[in-house]
Design a binder for these strands. Structure first.
Lengths: 303, 303
DNA sequence: CCAGATAATACTCAAAATGAGCATATAGCC
DNA sequence: GGCTATATGCTCATTTTGAGTATTATCTGG
């Protein structure tokens, strides 16, 4: 957590929900935003629901007219500077939700490619240029100044390795490093150049969500919540790749997916792929239900 | 989440912290409790700290006179029935913290073996008798009645497999199953026989904590926070086993630990083990810091 | 109809990781 | 010295990965 300055408050508290709603459309990982992509959807928590989770679910389904498949609590923030009005503090509870894209009802809501906010995180077409051209030079400058150089340098090497060894799960660590080094801004109006910024700490919350999701797809069958009823193996792979921000070995991906028996053929094929027609698959919700508890796997383990 | 009945409330909200503090002493995984082991330590959150995390840390260190090594947020609860007085709702934010045992300052606080609350979770000396003698018969009865028999039966088979295949991470799923089946009680005064109960949903929170910790030790080097400054490999293994509730293959455990270079020899040996003296090791905090971000491993993967 | 082009799908192979043992070393104790 | 209890070293078969090559099926433009 980054050190911040704020007035000391009293004990009046309100609760806010902040939702990170994710869909994958084509090869793009997308997130629902409001206010011209400057904020995540959020709202005051009304104690009319049985739980936070059901409150969020109802709210999202009202907004998007789309069922909310998978929901998971992300983190609860209650920093001292999280105030709303004089001495009135806010506790923000953030959630990650997986859906499929639908036209959002509200006028200023829209789906955005999440790499608009984190351009350095998409390594599907190779290492993004911005890393070598902007990030590393400025991080090295930052690391070789200031106190604790060794620590800073080590953090840089781990999160932005020069050679191989990119770890796609370190989204939050990378963001916090860039934040400390002053390369990204929080609170909207910053002029730091890297990626589009968001209100308050919403971009940090999005980073948390991406990190969680990238970790989760490796051992729990949550990708399925992002897929249409039937799909080809390549579509499934592209979805995973969109989230992970890196490419996978096609044959091994299939081997692993098929070995887990999470899907079954529909019997039909898709001709839309260009080459040889691909078999269509659907999930086996029954198995998914038990695997949701047991485990799953994706070939994303090592570098 | 289990369905509950409660009056509809308004929007007055307060925040509570609930701490699950874990230590491992000898071969016992222990948790700090208050009120004669009927509750987890908790308190109103004062907005005087920079963040929830620092508030918790300060509070625990004042209580136990012991630094709090690792802290992680567990979950935030805001169920509709979480009230304190008329129409005054409480949001409870739970944390997991790892320490080493110290005499708690407060009078009614004390360390308790966590298997007192979950006797069916300790499989180190074989499958606990209570599973075959009490749990499975009553769960089968419950599953073969009621609606959705297939679903119930599947849940029983997955969480309490008859043959092999015990999955130590399903602590929460097992607890919720037993709760639904009426085999465990919440809120203190229940007379259900299985394990010691706790106030409100504290036992459920403890189950969440155990599940999280059991999952985490497999891929992040958090065990170290529970160890004294120097220790033998067997002590380390016993600590992991205490948490996981299952035994590990000694030679493979060593192979994995040594391969990761997380520890180094102190040069001394311990004669207290009975047989051949064991080398003493200490952590390499420097490596641990980077592995904390990268990864780690323990031979707990498969059955 | 044939020659690319584009994917899908099927197999192969070496390296690494894992699970399960046996073998040997070094103490204390009688 | 023999016995017991652990620590520590080493082997081996099996599985799991990572990375290829080969073959099949469809569409497209000549």
């Amino acid at each position: 957590m980054v050190e911040r300055e704020a007035a000391q408050g009293d004990n009046d508290v309100a609760a806010d929900l902040i939702a990170v709603l994710v869909a994958v459309t084509g090869a793009e990982p997308r997130v629902l935003t409001i206010q011209n992509a400057s904020a995540l959807p959020s709202g005051a928590f009304q104690m009319v629901h049985r739980s936070l989770q059901s409150g969020l679910r109802a709210w999202v389904e009202r907004q998007t007219h789309h069922p909310l498949g998978y929901v998971e609590q992300l983190y609860t923030f209650a920093d001292r500077d999280r105030v709303r009005g004089a001495g009135f503090h806010v506790i923000s509870i953030s959630y990650l939700g997986l859906t499929r894209e639908a036209d959002p009802a509200a006028g200023d809501a829209g789906w955005r490619n999440w790499y608009d906010f984190f351009p350095w995180e998409d390594h599907r077409a190779g290492v993004p240029e911005v890393i070598g051209k902007v990030i590393l030079p400025r991080l090295e400058e930052w690391a070789s100044a200031g106190p604790d150089r060794r620590g800073r340098q080590q953090r840089v090497v781990i999160t932005f390795p020069a050679a191989g060894g990119w770890n796609e799960e370190l989204v939050l660590q990378r963001y916090e490093l860039l934040y400390e080094a002053g390369l990204v801004a929080e609170g909207g109006g910053g002029e730091a150049a890297l990626g589009q910024s968001m209100v308050s700490d919403h971009r940090r919350i999005l980073a948390t969500a991406i990190a969680r999701l990238r970790a989760k797809i490796k051992y729990r069958p949550v990708v399925f919540e992002l897929m249409p009823p039937s799909f080809t193996l390549l579509q499934l792979q592209r979805t995973v790749e969109a989230i992970a921000g890196r490419l996978l070995h096609k044959q091994n991906f299939r081997r692993l997916i098929e070995a887990q028996e999470l899907i079954e053929e529909t019997g039909e094929t898709s001709l839309e792929t260009g080459g040889r027609p691909a078999k269509l698959f659907r999930f086996r919700r029954d198995v998914v239900a038990e695997r949701a508890v047991m485990g799953s796997k994706l070939p994303l383990s090592r570098s």
